[in-house]
Design a binder for these strands. Sequence first.
DNA 1: TACAATTATATCGTGTACGATACAAATGTA
DNA 2: TACATTTGTATCGTACACGATATAATTGTA
Lengths: 149, 149
Amino acid sequence: MDKPELLLENQLCFPIYSVSRLITQAYQPYLEPLGLTYPQYLVMLVLWENDGVSINHITRKLLLNTNTVSPLLKRMESQSLLQRKRSEQDERTVIIELTKKGSALKNEAAEIPHNLLAAVSSENMSAEEVNQLKNTLCKWMDALSKPKQ
Amino acid sequence: MDKPELLLENQLCFPIYSVSRLITQAYQPYLEPLGLTYPQYLVMLVLWENDGVSINHITRKLLLNTNTVSPLLKRMESQSLLQRKRSEQDERTVIIELTKKGSALKNEAAEIPHNLLAAVSSENMSAEEVNQLKNTLCKWMDALSKPKQ
DNA sequence: TACAATTATATCGTGTACGATACAAATGTA
DNA sequence: TACATTTGTATCGTACACGATATAATTGTA
């Protein structure tokens, strides 16, 4: 076999891509009772932290584009998780506010991070290794999400 | 702010999800000239390593389901990258074979891993840290992809 | 103050992902 | 050898992602 650099097992990208999908799958049993998908859960994390923000704020926080977030919020609105209304200062801006139902979900979600970590952690990964992983990925995420000059 | 465990910045899942997307985006300028998407590139990696394999082989290698891979291969067949034919030993099995065009693409792809690493590596990440990251993620991928008993 | 440039959001089209389901071929078993 | 089970693949429906494009509101500037 020539070109060992093209072997699947020599790629860094593939484990990232796979682990990302596998973790999303691992969330499902915990999110399904709340009626949330994983991207919807991320939106809720942003709103639980700061309610009444613009769509733009959400796209910046999640590093997603408006053409992903806009329909996502629409689906969540139709589930009565949130409301959209125009800002009075700037008519272009849409402000997203949680409904009572959306706010109340926070308490039900409180256990998820703990439960998920337990679900996806493996015996041969120490807490320190997990922490190291998070640091490296965050550093990388910041570097990759910086506008290229 | 109560429930700090629900802060976006305290999640491990989010940087994985984001880095995965950002890397896929980083591939695009290199894959677009070859007419490949990122998942299609992964399929090509499998086929360049072992041509003439079953669809099942590809799904196991990429940890994807048939309902993702089947249409993916159809799109690639319509681009004349590969051909599908029934196995003679087992009529259920579909064998995927690269076309000349598909095989020839391997040489054009040879530079991609090197170029991509250069494109996504940041100054504050050492080669050792990248290697450590790959090892941790591979270990985790293996653990997560194991059937749960 | 006209008007070009920018900003915030929405829409369209294509390509994944994936749960659920279907179905034919092969295999195991009474 | 009938027949239940398993295996390999395909199809359907829904929900992202994202490039490209559109549009209205705001801002910058001559």
